[in-house]
Write a protein that binds this DNA or RNA. Structure first.
Lengths: 137, 137
DNA sequence: TTGACTGCAAATGCTTTGCACCATT
DNA sequence: AATGGTGCAAAGCATTTGCAGTCAA
């Protein structure tokens, strides 16, 4: 999703497009990692030093509620990480380096649906995180 | 795992078996839910009113490090939940009621291994949570 | 114009920690 | 006796919130 599309969706939702929001959306769209709130804040400050931490928190929470963004809380981390909601995928976290690798798997998607269904539930959301160590060749 | 086995493992690890630890292990072993720290604390107080919150936090952290217990942080909850480490399983959380259902699935286990392997990783841990709404009959 | 949005600083809530005392080994 | 464990209270940290001023629509 491009920054322009994100802005459009915010507009459609009736949100005012302020400078802080524009900057934060831009940061998120260009982030190739899964930045923490503080990281989004630091990067935002470079574009507009007047942006406050409170606004970053408020904006990210808002985007999360709207479903434009995903909030992650990986193991052993005390802070949240965010990423733009693009294609559905999961994460493998390198427990030594903290590196996050994204992956998709059609079979697992089907299994999830099936499991929820068999338990009498309609699947709404899901969180799958693998934690591993890099294999030696 | 019975309370006696838990105590044995703590003993083997060289931990002193104190009253607070005995009580907390007993609480955990009998818990059929996934109690929060505060819940473990409240239940512990009924057996020994002198137990402090700090000790509950310290003990649970210790048991988690030892791998005797699992720490969960389900979506939209600001506190951790714990459960004794028994058979490997995952959770389906009812997003309306917060009810937690446990499940196992052999195929998913295999898929996880395969995915990690293909990404060049040795799988160490995993977290799979499904969030859903109860289906109407 | 006006209600949504913002920065600031104070407050919250879960969790951790320093310290002096105490109990298990 | 030694040292690891405990309760208490204070500190930490990520996150939230009250408020008064500001700005997009």
């Amino acid at each position: 999703m491009s920054a322009a599309e994100l802005i459009q969706k915010c507009h459609d939702a009736g949100l005012k497009m302020t400078e802080p929001r524009r900057v934060i959306l831009d940061i998120l769209e260009h982030a190739k990692d899964h930045p923490s709130v503080e990281e989004v804040y630091d990067r935002s400050k470079k574009q507009d030093s007047s942006i406050s931490m409170a606004t970053v928190y408020r904006t990210l929470a808002l985007l999360d509620e709207m479903g434009l963004v995903f909030r992650h809380e990986f193991n052993d981390e005390q802070h949240a990480r965010y990423e733009v909601n693009t294609e559905h995928h999961h994460h493998l976290i390198d427990i030594d380096t903290g590196k996050v690798i994204e992956f998709q798997n059609e079979k697992i998607e089907k299994m999830k649906q099936k499991i929820a269904d068999e338990l009498g539930y309609e699947l709404v959301e899901c969180r799958l995180e693998l934690y591993g160590k890099k294999k030696k060749k």
